[in-house]
Design a protein around this nucleic acid. Structure first.
Lengths: 334, 334
DNA sequence: CTGAAAGCGCTAACAC
DNA sequence: GTGTTAGCGCTTTCAG
């Protein structure tokens, strides 16, 4: 391995001067700089990130911490979209991403411990279960963090405008003439709660009574299966709704599957609205009307915020990104 | 920060002995070990991975290098599945994953340079374009690598049994009575070529002539759009096929969309078989008959192979994982 | 069984 | 502008 000492030897300058060149110090003469750069080129020098980190306490690494409840992990489009968006700006700003798990090297360790051992400069957290004690430990620590789909006074957060999205969805159904509007919830998660809350507010605002039988709390994993089960429950209700707003596209899809299995038509027999706008939404039959959240933008924004904090920015921010109702074929007017 | 020196001071032992305890050396008395572990616990000691790496030349980090041509990145289910599968075994074996890009710290650097700077122990590579010069540089290097969907005499590789998959797909259509079977290819990629080859071999084996107008080379990005365009081209052919085997589910989906837009029915007017079995395949209307490849297993296997090499294993391996035809609703018998 | 000494590759005071 | 020196936290001979 070629080190700065090799370059120093070859050029006759000291290691310090060589180091200064690579760190863009201004107090190096142009001629010296050129000679050193040339020698580095010839020798095929590459810096050693670990050595640098050891002295500077800066790893230029960001930890990516996610736990996706259904087990699909990064296969879930929300997670994938956010991480991809995050990666884009992080990479552009000179950071590399590292996956952080709860264990490391065969030993059981907390997320925080893992982060400290690896010396990451900051962490982006995508966790549905914010009661996780390991997560709380992270929250209390002083390590720079940004949280997705979460609410906190300790760390910066980014999320979509869940309330507004639900409102738009319900209002849209109302405009189509629906009055018996059900909700399939995303379980006890931040986004699930917000969307439920938005549904409730919208119903109240529109003067529609909420039939308790029409509010099904799906499981917290937002799976198709969960949506299917919820719809089956809904169909057993005393009074049948004419439309359902699901807190996620997978839930909506599951609901549609349940209806299909019973020979019911969407939107003929029931209108369905989802939330997310996963890529497949437009390819379903009928294509799914849904509230679009921009996962890529969420990731971008999260990275901006985290890097701001890492690089010494003060204070925390709570960003809410706009959503958009995408009207397709899964709803009909009554 | 607490270091082994702090523990040494507190316990009265030397840093060497402390280090030995954490590295499970056998020549430390049980009593000493206990005292040191106790002190470490009390002080809240955590090892410093960078310092350790500096001396041992071992980072316990694996670089993940992927370039997804459509720009969706990890949103593409193939990539996500493989990475998730890879992550599972890598994590269990004590390795962390780091995303590797072509640039680092604002500077343009090759993948190989990036890996060397970061001192990763090995790399898993998912790249469709194996003519990329940066990739070739990686191939020639001595760094442990495992390649997905690739063929190489220099590095270990893992891929699905593309040939067999294509054969099964075409034979299935044949058994249903189809004779004019078209193919929508995955462009000039390893998997695209293999699947095309499998299609050709199957046609020959079955004694079916291949109509050149029925073999459409889709673009290398396996997108829905590409599949749609291919089907449109197919429909302009002099003789219309009765079935099409697409090299990817997205291509198949695009083909189905194109048919739908023209008011043609699947499978009534045309039977369609895909490749991949992405999660959505079963939720399409009609649900898609396709060749299932187990991306998670590909990732698992890749990790096993790479870690084997990293930990001193000799030789390279070329693994081909079995695929399975999943019969659903998108094909009819003639 | 334990420890002294050297060194991994780099940066940061500080002096010249 | 340039160089000397010390040190980041850890492991590894090697000696005792």
């Amino acid at each position: 391995m070629i080190t700065i000492y090799d370059i120093a030897k070859k050029t006759g300058f000291s290691p310090t001067t060589v180091s200064k060149v690579f760190n863009d110090y201004s107090d190096v003469s142009a001629k010296t700089r050129r000679k050193i750069l040339e020698a580095a080129e010839q020798l095929g020098y590459l810096p050693n990130a670990h050595a640098r980190t050891l002295t500077t306490k800066r790893s230029w690494t960001i930890g990516v911490l996610y736990v996706e409840p259904s087990g699909a992990g990064i296969l879930h489009p929300y997670f994938a979209g956010v991480i991809e968006g995050f990666k884009q700006v992080a990479t552009a700003r000179g950071y590399d991403l590292m996956f952080i798990s709860k264990d490391i090297g065969g030993k059981k360790r907390s997320y925080l411990e893992h982060c400290k051992i690896r010396g990451v400069d900051g962490i982006v957290v995508i966790l549905p279960d914010y009661a996780d004690p390991y997560f709380l430990e992270l929250l209390d620590s002083s390590i720079p963090c940004v949280l997705l789909d979460q609410e906190s006074e300790l760390k910066s957060t980014v999320c979509s405008d869940n309330l507004e999205g639900s409102l738009r969805a319900v209002e849209y159904l109302y405009r189509l003439g629906h009055r018996k509007i059900a909700h399939i919830g995303g379980g006890d998660t931040f986004s699930g709660n917000r969307r439920l809350q938005g549904y409730m507010q919208a119903m109240e605002k529109l003067g529609l009574p909420v039939n308790p039988e029409h509010v099904i709390q799906g499981s917290f994993d937002y799976t198709v299966e969960s949506g299917r089960a919820a719809m089956e429950q809904l169909l057993r209700a005393g009074e049948r709704p004419t439309a359902v707003f699901a807190a996620g596209d997978n839930l909506a899809l599951g609901a549609m599957m349940a209806l299909k299995e019973r020979g019911m038509k969407v939107p003929g027999d029931m209108s369905v609205v989802g939330f997310d706008d996963i890529e497949m939404a437009k390819y379903l039959t009928p294509s799914l009307t849904t509230v679009r959240q921009d996962t890529y933008a969420l990731g971008n924004r999260a990275a901006d915020m985290l890097i701001y904090t890492i690089e010494g920015g003060e204070g925390i921010r709570t960003d809410i990104l706009p959503v958009e109702l995408v009207i397709r074929e899964s709803c009909r007017s009554l």
